[in-house]
């Protein structure tokens, strides 16, 4: 969006966002500590692109040496696999593993719970074993190490924030505390929805539902879910998945609650709190 070109950022070389690619790093003979796996939504979806840049801002802020694959990255194969297309999944997986292994990648952070689950759990059986974390886990680690605080930016004091557990982060991989730890740092009022953690309700996008019309029913799943947030009187729904982001944002629009409820990724909240 052209109006988002932030002049002050351009003038301040410190905050200029540099995004190194693995290819560049390799050409310079460098091996980054961490690979940031952006994912398809993070690469192409406008709303998710903002989150991607925010994750980069955090990485740059704390001074981790990282890189992205850029045009060498391809879909992990997750939607194909959940939809039953194992051929396509394994084609994607093996091609990606070849690229990752060629760069001798050891540690990966993902911006998407689906990429996280697939690379972490399903790639090892096909020859791709890496230490994989989700970006909320990275944020938690950085907080624990004292490298990341919530200062110098927007104050969330007193704001009611609720966390929507993405299925592929929560139930699928038992990551419930990391995103909450990142939110606790904000000094906001954390509220839980009626259905949370292992009882969390899906946003409706998983299992390749994102890419098809829903079957006939009497309600949209995201409408059902956003009602939980409305009932919890949340002002901010924190999410940690680009697909949940789309579904929940649509749910807010559907209920005409744009004025009352914001849907923001944990990374975005972190960036705002630090004025990055």
């Amino acid at each position: 969006m052209p109006w988002e070109n932030n002049k002050s950022e351009m003038e301040d070389p410190k905050s200029e966002l540099k995004i190194p690619t693995m290819a560049q790093m390799a050409a310079e003979g460098k091996e980054p500590e961490l690979l940031f796996w952006v994912g398809c939504a993070g690469s192409f979806d406008e709303r998710a692109q903002k989150i991607t840049r925010d994750i980069c801002k955090i990485l740059q802020h704390v001074g981790i040496s990282y890189a992205v694959l850029g045009t060498e990255e391809s879909c992990t194969g997750d939607p194909a696999k959940r939809a039953g297309n194992e051929f396509l999944f394994q084609m994607q997986a093996m091609t990606n593993i070849e690229v990752l292994n060629a760069y001798a990648v050891k540690k990966i952070v993902t911006g998407c719970p689906h990429c996280f689950n697939t690379i972490k759990n399903e790639y090892p059986g096909l020859g791709g074993s890496y230490e994989v974390i989700h970006h909320t886990q990275l944020i938690q680690q950085l907080i624990d190490e004292g490298k990341l605080k919530a200062e110098g930016g927007e104050s969330f004091k007193g704001k009611k924030i609720t966390f929507h557990d993405p299925c592929y982060l929560g139930r699928a991989n038992n990551v419930y505390e990391a995103p909450r730890a990142a939110l606790e740092m904000l000094d906001a009022e954390l509220v839980e929805m009626k259905r949370c953690k292992s009882n969390g309700l899906c946003c409706g996008a998983g299992g390749a539902q994102m890419f098809k019309e829903p079957e006939k029913g009497n309600k949209e799943i995201n409408a059902e879910r956003i009602e939980d947030a409305i009932n919890a009187n949340a002002q901010i729904v924190a999410s940690a998945c680009p697909f949940c982001m789309t579904m929940l944002s649509d749910g807010v629009k559907l209920k005409e609650k744009e004025q009352a409820i914001q849907v923001l990724d944990v990374a975005e909240l972190t960036v705002r709190a630090n004025g990055l």
Partner: peptide
Amino acid sequence: VENNGAPWKYSQADRLNWA
């Protein structure tokens, strides 16, 4: 996914445009 490496119709060459 097969042709563009993403579930949507975007070119793989544009994958870093967000940067």
